[in-house]
């Protein structure tokens, strides 16, 4: 019971580490890295949910796609394609968000000369 849930638990631990970095660190770059770790952990968890024991990738070979019988045996041994398709979307969106956060951090560093959140908050203008 515990062993079958162990990969989920480790993915959750990774997510908690990311959340800790986002909340507790005061360097903006560190916070961005925390968001990236959080992103990885959530993608990993969704992928783990779709795995089947001994499953193959959801790509049929031409021989398997030839008839409906071989296709049915393929479908009975394939991992879940839906989480994979949605995680593929999420990975690329993660890159876009990271680029946006990094450009904001660059501008903040240009204006205040520091990545420290607490000092940026104290400064005016």
């Amino acid at each position: 019971m515990t062993l079958t849930a162990l990969p989920y638990l480790l993915a959750l631990a990774l997510m908690i580490i990311g959340l800790y970095v986002v909340v507790a660190k005061k360097n903006i770059i560190k916070i961005i890295l925390g968001v990236a770790i959080l992103d990885y952990a959530v993608n990993l968890f969704l992928l783990l949910l779709g795995y089947r024991d001994g499953g193959t990738a959801p790509i049929a070979s031409p021989q398997q796609a030839a008839s409906s019988d071989t296709l049915a045996t393929f479908a009975a041994g394939s991992v879940d394609p839906v989480p994979q398709a949605l995680v593929l979307t999420s990975i690329v969106i993660g890159l876009g968000c990271l680029a946006l956060m990094v450009s904001l951090a660059i501008r903040l560093h240009e204006k205040f000369g520091t990545f420290d959140m607490t000092r940026i908050r104290e400064l005016k203008g």
Partner: peptide, 29 residues
Amino acid sequence: GGWAMTTLHPFGQPLLASDAPGVAAQYLA
């Protein structure tokens, strides 16, 4: 969260392989 994870279907046996396979089985079929 760990308690919630233990109530999920076990690793290696996705919803796809259960009695209510959902939309993924239709896509695969």
